[in-house]
Design a protein around this nucleic acid. Sequence first.
DNA 1: TCTGTTAATATGTATAGACATTATTTTGCC
DNA 2: GGCAAAATAATGTCTATACATATTAACAGA
Lengths: 234, 234
Amino acid sequence: MKPVPLHERIRAEIESAIMAGHLRPGDRIPKETELMAQYDCARMTVNKALSALAGAGMLERRKRAGSFVARPRAQSMVLDVPDLAAAIAARGQRYRWDIASRKITAPDRAQAEALGVSAKVLSVTGVHFAEELPLAFEERMVNLALVPGIADADLSQTPPGSWLIAHVPWTEAENRISAAAAPPAIARALGMARGAPCLVLERRTWRGPDTVTRVRQYFVADRYELVARFGPNL
Amino acid sequence: MKPVPLHERIRAEIESAIMAGHLRPGDRIPKETELMAQYDCARMTVNKALSALAGAGMLERRKRAGSFVARPRAQSMVLDVPDLAAAIAARGQRYRWDIASRKITAPDRAQAEALGVSAKVLSVTGVHFAEELPLAFEERMVNLALVPGIADADLSQTPPGSWLIAHVPWTEAENRISAAAAPPAIARALGMARGAPCLVLERRTWRGPDTVTRVRQYFVADRYELVARFGPNL
DNA sequence: TCTGTTAATATGTATAGACATTATTTTGCC
DNA sequence: GGCAAAATAATGTCTATACATATTAACAGA
């Protein structure tokens, strides 16, 4: 019912042969002229399929030698780290954001080091609720030099993450995922026992060399999990 | 000194315009015919550059409408879930695996449901050490119908994860990351206090429709973290 | 004014060929 | 045999063109 482009079909067939283990790392795949004959198409079509696979890191191509299945360097999975408001809404629950503090400061030494900048900083803390149950405590710093507009945003209604996604581009991000016992103040804000386990997600985003924002979210342990997948059903 | 292909130059220039913020999410970029005139080249060359950017998720291309800078999605970060033995070795530490139990059973009802198969199952538990400090407790089930060879493997020397990576191809995998208080038996095995927080990583891998293995790893909270990145400097 | 049809437009796919680049293999010479 | 030059075989880049497809915009009819 849906016509699949030929180069896409070639790409998919080789990809699944690799994923199913019929082609193993280091194996050589047929040369372009052979695939060209096999699929009865032009070389550019084959080339497009193979280039895409090479770009995705599944093939290594060497002139004169041929194309080879790349050995997977680390097992790279795709991790969904969605905006919390959107994620909760997506699973059909009511979302609420409750801001706890908001201030603008010139960063002290610790913040300057953490943010990697010395410009003025907006600091926000608050709690994310799903169905009126506290889900996560958030503490965030935003680089005002890069994002001046957020000083005028109404962060009591919109959580800063959602505002930033809509307004600020970034080029690079890093998430660190760990577990920790909830510090007393956070346990209180989340209605948990002191020392109860939390899933901690710390994210920094950059634009070029400059830090845009840094956020740490403490999730109530049994109310949230992150899912990373690898496979054809993306 | 190094001849950069034209399509690569076009790609890089647009990419850096996006990264520098000159082109912002939602902005329209020049149409192919315009870029074609600007760089004095054929449309296929421009097309290759733009297709690569679209494939990398930096552009959204719509017929008749044009090409637009995609808004970066917080979803889709690349998470490295390396084999523990390799990961620990990679950071220069001594690795040790201590097997605690190993048995082959016909799965009971709960296991059958969890594994999604009713064939015979190899169950293994054990502890991963880094520099003789316990790092993670692992409990794993392996589908013997798909991986008969592991029945003969020496799992007291090689952790099952490393053995599987070397011997078994898979087509699909899912990781669930959460936090939990360590159950008593696991806390004891890891030398932690009862109820201390753990980072829990549960992974299932499939080959086609069949589950290959399912593993749950409990990490001592402050000795391990997962890192997911997005950005050009991979 | 609304609605359905048609035309215009930007991207998507594919072709056939030319030449460039880079390893590898073969050849020819000492 | 050992070694350097030349042939060769694979991918890399690029062109010019053709037609397909999806979506917007313009237009006509009720």
